[in-house]
Computed example of a mutant assay.
Amino acid sequence: MKNIDWSPWLIRMSQGDEEAFRTVYEETREHAYRLICYLSSSKEDAADIMSEVYIELLKSADKYRPEQPFTAWFNGLIVRQVRNWKRKSWRLYRIVEKVKLLADVSPDRKAEAELSAVGDQLELLPILRKLPLKAREIIVLRYYQDCSMEEIAALLEIPLGTVKSRHHYALKQLRRQFEEVQG
């Protein structure tokens, strides 16, 4: 990776300049890919993690401070995304195990766990998009960001009871839509 002043590029990127993003991507992609391959346990995941790295780079370009070395800052971003990916994989494993354990539990809890597992495995994005925004927020924060119900209530500045009712409603809607897709 070239030793250049990245600040102007990152500022332009944070302002939506696509050319700046392309330049930063072209100059950093080999470095990022190598580091991801070293850190991740699966080479098959490298391309997906790489996408996550550049999405996060777009989101956090405005947080870069010129007094810090770009390479160190960028490496930190890569390491965090690899960790997030591993955590997501581990969460999928735990959810699948939970589904197995909940086989004899109430239908609501079992359905919730099954939906979580299916969501991570089959990408529920098209089905999620059909949910109203308030319900979608709860599902994304709960299952994709690993937030507790209390954290969601604080984050959205709504009562815990409202979070729980929206969660219940969203799961019911997802179940119904998933069953329609399964046909």
Score class of each variant (00 low, 15 high):
Leu58Gln: 15
Leu102Asn: 05
Met1Ile: 01
Lys100Glu: 15
Tyr93Val: 12
Tyr93His: 14
Tyr93Trp: 11
Gln81Gly: 04
Thr162Glu: 13
Arg176Val: 07
Leu77Lys: 03
Gln182Cys: 13
Leu35Ile: 09
Arg83Glu: 11
Glu19Trp: 04
Ala170Val: 00
Pro69His: 10
Trp85Met: 07
Val181Lys: 11
Ile127Asp: 01
Leu155Met: 12
Val53Asp: 01
Trp73Gly: 04
Cys37Met: 08
Lys98Met: 08
Lys100Gln: 14
Val118Pro: 00
Glu97Tyr: 05
Glu56Phe: 08
Asp45Ala: 10
Ile55Val: 15
Gly183Asp: 10
Tyr38Ala: 14
Leu131Pro: 00
Gln15Cys: 07
Lys134Asp: 15
Gln15His: 05
Trp73Ser: 07
Ser60Ile: 14
Ile138Glu: 06
Leu39Ala: 05
Ser106Phe: 01
Leu115Phe: 01
Ala135Glu: 15
Leu174Asp: 00
Ile127Glu: 02
Trp6Arg: 07
His167Glu: 07
Gln177Asn: 08
Ile152Val: 08
Ser165Gln: 12
Arg91Thr: 14
Leu124Met: 14
Cys147Tyr: 15
Leu35Val: 06
Thr23Lys: 14
Arg83His: 11
Ile4Val: 09
Asn3Ser: 14
Lys164Leu: 07
Gln177Cys: 03
Leu131Met: 05
Arg12Ala: 15
Lys100Leu: 10
Ile158Gly: 03
Ser14Gln: 05
Trp73Gln: 00
Ile36Cys: 06
Arg176Ser: 12
Ala103Glu: 11
Thr28Lys: 00
Ala153Gly: 04
Ile139Cys: 03
Asp17Ser: 11
Leu122Gly: 07
Arg87Ala: 14
Arg22Tyr: 12
Arg65Phe: 07
